[in-house]
Design a protein around this nucleic acid. Structure first.
Lengths: 226, 226
DNA sequence: GGATCGTCTCAGCGCGTTCTAAGGTTCGTT
DNA sequence: AACGAACCTTAGAACGCGCTGAGACGATCC
């Protein structure tokens, strides 16, 4: 993506959060923090991170429950679980619940970074990935789309935008979220680039009499749905 | 692959060896066992495995030393290290020594299998002698290409670049990826070597009225496709 | 020492991509 | 129905990416 990958760090221990935040920020990631499971779920919805570093042991909603809720909401975000105890059971339960990998505390930052890289490579850009929605396909490797038997070439911005939609189908994406992900704008600078690019995309993927896929939600943003 | 992938399991604990051997054999791998570091080095030389599952704690030559010797002998085999103690230092030293990944004992077989798969995917080095794409052939041994009945001589850099494309057809390779693979740059300074070499390649493999094979993807990189 | 080959730098330019801006259209609210 | 806000559409300006040709530099061979 044009902008730095977002990572959400959920841990009730502020020291862990700080270490992880600083290290990942130094590596060029955009880091969002949450001090509890509740806050984690909220921030995940708000920022659409590519990966969540999630402590398993937390008061209130613990890491396992956060994972369960994210997954049952259809969120496929990469989850790296931090387990305090070194017990097979914990790790297995974590993976069964829907986490993608785990790391046993205490860990060095280098270990965390290695797992983060591996996960992002595996999850965010798996080889041969083809995203599908309705009769629309997005070939991530080739950076091209397919619909109605034709191949659709996309520019970088068009691709990034469509990728965001395809990764969050049926979910209303607000203007702010889209702008942050595709254009890296922190600030609304009064621009209609987004509308222009939605039009470009529609022109390419909704040719002729094909059904509309990118719908406008007035006052909110856009959704990918039938 | 024409033959089953070979995996060498080095551990002084026969129970571990048995569990791992049975599981991996069930998955279709050819498993070779060794009960000590010395035997491990010997079997590695003899069988040229694609991956070594290596216990770190062994009497005599331990896992770290085995790794060191393999690496200093130029062996790039994938190494998955088994560490008994859950101490950061052990794991980090293991990775620094040249291991590719580690697993903390006790582990479930599923965990082991996941790591083995990931490692093989990452490290696998397909040594095809002649790569083909469309009407273009790349003879890896002779380091020359063929198209339209003629033989195309390539310089080292041209060959490496074309090899990368041929190994990832129809996949957009970003500038960074190409630079890392072909030039091993940390890309500090801006350079357009890549563009220059793409031009050289195009000049050689897309002579006259032949169709374009290396396509530019503006803002991203290049793709090999029809 | 000269010639050839391979690698890489540099600067100018063309053109695709991105974005702005202005006017038009639709929608929701009253 | 009327109004303003939100969104759509279009054209074209501005930007910068990638292409190109020339040549500097070092290595190798004669």
């Amino acid at each position: 993506m044009s902008e730095a990958t977002r990572i959400l760090v959920v841990d009730d221990d502020p020291r862990i959060r700080t270490v992880v935040r600083r290290g990942l920020a130094y590596e060029g990631y955009r880091v969002v923090e949450a001090a509890s499971g509740e806050e984690g779920l909220e921030k995940a919805r708000e920022h659409l991170p590519a990966l969540v570093v999630l402590d398993i042991m937390m008061p209130g909603i613990d890491g396992l429950e956060v994972t369960r809720r994210l997954r049952s909401a259809g969120d496929e975000v990469a989850i790296l679980m931090l387990t305090a105890r070194d017990e097979v059971k914990d790790r297995v339960v974590g993976l069964e619940t829907g986490a993608d990998d785990y790391l046993v505390k205490p860990f060095s930052f280098e270990e965390l970074l290695a797992r983060v890289h591996a996960l992002l490579r595996r999850k965010a850009a798996p080889a041969g990935e083809v995203l599908r929605f309705a009769d629309l396909e997005l070939d991530v490797d080739a950076r091209e789309a397919h619909r109605g038997g034709r191949t659709i070439e996309l520019t970088t911005t068009e691709f990034n935008l469509l990728l965001l939609f395809m990764r969050h189908p049926r979910k209303v994406l607000t203007r702010d979220v889209i702008m942050e992900h595709v254009w890296a704008y922190d600030f609304e600078g009064e621009s209609n680039v987004l509308e222009v690019y939605v039009r470009y995309l529609r022109g390419k993927i909704e040719a002729d009499g094909e059904s509309r896929l990118i719908h406008t939600v007035r006052g909110a943003g856009y959704v990918l749905k039938e």
